[in-house]
Design a protein around this nucleic acid. Structure first.
Length: 274
DNA sequence: CTCAGATCCTGTGCGC
DNA sequence: TGCGCACAGGATCTGA
């Protein structure tokens, strides 16, 4: 389940292998993803040289002279560099063969991901235009979050997980940042004051930055046999720790469902503001 | 408009 | 040991 730090780590790992390479052929074995792959993908891509990579939210963008490939890893997607002709694995759906005998393989068992070519560029692209600011950018700050929370009765956890508020905060990081901020996940957003919003923003930024740094430490073997994503080495205080003791106050970690998602919290540390 | 819930999909891990 | 089922998750769509 790649979160924003894993996408960033994957991008940094792929960059030196992809930039400057020309796409020689394209193999599409499966087209059914969140949106179907372009029917004429190979015609569009063959002969184009990859100029650079970038990221927006959890979308990885592979820039070409005539367009952009948008890749989303969904929750089970992987991108790996392989030698051309290396043995195929189950769910290896798409393959870009490069001019140096290597290839990029997109593997996604659950097919929640996305592999699209946008030949008109990204300006006003329907998948990107509704996205809020990047969590690590200066545009995501206390006053911004406070202004949005002011009018919302929804649980604060739902608000920080909404892509139009801020991108890249999945269930793990929402859960952990609310614990660090000592805010109960079901607290209605409008109950938070400016100071609390600032604390929350700070923890979201800190935990994402930490995860990216840790992902970076595993970058060297990221494409090794295990391909273990970085957040497994993160110390998770509440996520997945229901019925265990809180590290801080020893209370038993509880869990509620918010918008259909398990939301762990510590009843001792996290306050429901009203 | 706002918010909750359903939906897509398959591998994992639990209980029986 | 084996079977079956609930669960996990991001983004989007629907309906109240």
């Amino acid at each position: 389940m790649p979160e924003l730090p894993e996408v960033e780590t994957t991008l940094r790992g792929l960059e030196p292998h992809l930039v400057g390479r020309t796409i020689c052929s394209v193999i599409v074995r499966e087209t059914r993803f969140r949106l179907p792959v372009n029917a004429d993908l190979e015609q569009h891509l063959v002969g184009q040289k990859i100029t650079h990579l970038s990221r927006r939210a959890k979308y990885m963008l592979i820039h070409l002279p005539l367009g952009v490939i948008l890749v989303h890893l969904g929750m089970s997607g992987h991108l790996r560099m392989m030698d051309e002709g290396a043995p195929q694995k189950k769910h290896d759906h798409i393959e870009l063969v490069l001019d140096d005998g290597r290839c990029l393989r997109f593997n996604d068992p659950r097919r929640f991901g996305l592999f699209l070519y946008a030949c008109d560029g990204l300006d006003g692209h329907s998948l990107l235009k509704h996205l809020g600011p990047e969590p690590l950018s200066l545009q995501f700050h206390a006053e911004y979050l406070y202004a949005l929370c002011n009018s919302k009765k929804a649980a604060i956890k739902s608000v920080i997980m909404s892509n139009d508020v801020v991108v890249g905060v999945g269930n793990i990081y929402a859960t952990e940042s609310l614990f660090l901020s000592r805010i109960h996940p079901e607290t209605p957003a409008y109950r938070l004051n400016l100071f609390q919003c600032g604390v929350l923003v700070g923890h979201i930024k800190a935990i994402l930055a930490q995860a990216i740094n840790m992902g970076g430490t595993t970058l060297r073997d990221f494409y090794g046999a295990d391909g273990k994503p970085g957040y497994f080495s993160l110390s998770l205080a509440v996520y997945g720790r229901q019925r265990q003791a809180c590290f801080v106050c020893d209370a038993v970690i509880d869990s509620v469902k918010i918008a259909g998602r398990a939301s762990a919290f510590c009843p001792g540390c996290q306050v429901y503001f009203k």
